[in-house]
């Protein structure tokens, strides 16, 4: 029941957020300073919530990994796996939406030396490796243990990567949102609703993924019973 509410709320909010972005929200930048078509800057309403959701997903992986090593309960492993898989998709979407926009605004899909771009790329690579670790181990208990170790090590690498990339080249061409937080401008309203929509989407996808994993386990158990 609770899941159904979550899924329907996600759907409604996503539809509302798409409507708001296309028909209500202003262009989130002064058109005079924008490169390319200023209307393209509206992708920001999707890009920022997706990026923050990816970070959130990886924080869940980190916490679940610690909890797994502490309690050795399988539910934490399932949570870590689900959050990592969904997080990788969100991280990829961050890179993709950013690149599509960058082509219009900067004239290039990728700027090699930008701090934020490279940090997102490293984040994506670390969690691809996390999934690689999972794939390489057969036994469930060992897989949970080893991937939990990597989940901790990988997450700690992210802030250090950010610091080292920033030191390597301080300049960023990445725009920084300047919001007036005191007033409920259309910009802020749209952004908040988008944040809510994507956080709920993240929660729904992780819940669904956990459900799949639990069903898989049930299936395996039934198979084992059949054999005996």
């Amino acid at each position: 029941m609770l899941k159904k509410i979550l899924y329907s709320l996600t759907t409604v909010l996503l539809l509302v957020s798409i409507y708001l972005v296309f028909f209500y929200a202003p262009i989130p930048i002064n058109p005079a300073t924008a490169g390319g078509d200023p209307a393209n800057f509206k992708i920001f309403y999707f890009h920022l919530p997706i990026a923050i959701s990816a970070y959130l997903a990886f924080a869940i992986v980190f916490i679940s990994s610690i909890m797994y090593l502490k309690t050795k309960e399988q539910k934490w492993d399932i949570r870590a796996l689900s959050a990592a898989e969904v997080g990788v998709i969100f991280a990829f979407l961050t890179l993709a939406s950013g690149s599509i926009w960058a082509r219009s605004a900067w004239g290039a899909y990728w700027v090699t030396w930008d701090v934020r771009l490279n940090t997102s790329l490293v984040l994506f690579l670390i969690y691809i490796s996390y999934l690689m670790v999972r794939q390489a181990v057969e036994e469930p208990e060992k897989r949970a243990r080893l991937s939990a170790v990597f989940g901790i090590v990988g997450f700690l690498g992210v802030p250090l990567s950010f610091m080292s990339i920033r030191l390597w080249n301080k300049t960023t061409v990445h725009p920084i949102a300047e919001l007036n937080y005191n007033t409920f401008s259309p910009l802020l309203t749209t952004l908040i609703i988008n944040f809510a929509a994507f956080f709920l989407l993240l929660a729904s996808l992780i819940t669904l993924r956990i459900g799949i994993e639990l069903l898989k386990e049930k299936g395996n158990e039934l198979k084992r019973k059949q054999n005996i």
Binding site: S129, Y130, A136, E138, L146, F150, G157, S164, I165
Partner: peptide, 30 residues
């Protein structure tokens, strides 16, 4: 640490560089 982690996996020699380099980025860059 990661060498000890990969030694128990199926594809250890291939897996180690793949998972080590992303984590190692701050070291290599600096």
């Amino acid at each position: 640490l990661l060498s000890a982690l990969t030694v128990n996996t199926r594809t250890r020699e291939i897996l180690l560089p793949v998972i080590l380099f992303p984590v190692l980025l701050p070291v290599i860059l600096s």
